[in-house]
């Protein structure tokens, strides 16, 4: 794997994106902003008038903003790493054209993951700007939520793209989205604190990569002063997912493209 080779793959993804960006504006920007309005402002108005029991005494908009930020990064990375990978390996076979050049299967894979990070950065920047304008980002530390969102995206993009590289059809992809990504979206501390879950279920939330991403983003946007050791633990958990996914993906892409 060479850095310049990976960049060439990213450049290709960017050029494809130039033609297709309109379709992703809804799922990666408008949808989370609508959620922010409905949940943060609408539902939040009800919640804040009541008990106001959120940890740190946060208002609901401030609480839900980092949750939506991380969850959107996850969802964008997940859908980007399933069907488009199948298009590259089976449907349009563009990846096969790429490995006929000096690029290797690992370059193609890592390029995909890096691009997922770039896309997440763009989407997260736009979302954070809107959320900040609405008053959902009280701390200047909120800028740090950007790399946290990018890390969250790669933690999902790498293993899911690696998995997609093993598949001959897309039948399993909707199952992954509905039974994997959707429950994580709902129960990873995105919309309510994990402490609200029944005690037996809480450890399940802790192994969710999204929970680590949400915790990091929330510490950043609220400026809550998370202990460095805790932050390092979250970063390590997400980094481990991304690294394991890259190791697996260079193998599955290698088998698929160069056997």
């Amino acid at each position: 794997m060479a850095a310049t080779a990976v960049l060439r793959v990213v450049e290709r993804e960017a050029r494809v994106f130039r033609h297709l960006w309109r379709g992703s504006v809804f799922s990666n920007f408008l949808a989370p902003v609508l959620f922010l309005g409905a949940m943060g402002l609408g539902l939040g108005g009800l919640i804040d008038d009541g008990a106001g029991e959120l940890p740190g005494g946060l208002d609901y908009l401030t609480f839900v903003t980092p949750g939506l930020l991380a969850a959107t990064a996850m969802q964008g990375a997940a859908s980007e790493s399933l069907w488009p990978v199948m298009a590259g390996t089976k449907w349009i076979r563009t990846y096969h054209g790429m490995v006929a050049t000096p690029l290797s299967a690992t370059d193609v894979f890592v390029g995909h993951v890096v691009w997922a990070g770039v896309r997440a950065a763009v989407a997260a920047t736009a979302f954070l700007a809107v959320a900040a304008a609405l008053g959902g980002v009280p701390s200047a530390w909120g800028v740090v939520a950007l790399p946290a969102a990018v890390l969250t995206a790669t933690a999902f993009a790498a293993p899911l793209a690696a998995f997609a590289g093993t598949q001959d059809t897309d039948v399993s992809f909707p199952v992954i989205m509905r039974l994997g990504v959707m429950p994580l979206f709902l129960f990873s501390g995105t919309f309510f604190p994990v402490a609200q879950l029944p005690g037996a279920v809480q450890p399940v939330a802790w192994i969710s990569p999204l929970w680590h991403g949400v915790e990091l983003c929330r510490a950043a946007t609220t400026g809550s002063g998370m202990a460095p050791i805790v932050a390092a633990g979250h970063v390590a958990a997400l980094g481990a997912c991304a690294a394991a996914g890259c190791w697996w993906g260079s193998r599955t892409f290698g088998r698929r493209l160069t056997q």
């Binding site: 060439r8 450049e11 290709r12 076979r93 563009t94 054209g97 790429m98 050049t101 000096p102 690029l103």
Partner: peptide
């Protein structure tokens, strides 16, 4: 290759440019 592996969403020109960049 036996089966085309062109980037079908892209233009003819962009296909050539992207491929040149791979090299």
């Amino acid at each position: 290759p036996q089966e085309d592996t062109l980037d079908t969403e892209l233009t003819v020109w962009d296909n050539l440019v992207i491929y040149g960049r791979y090299f």
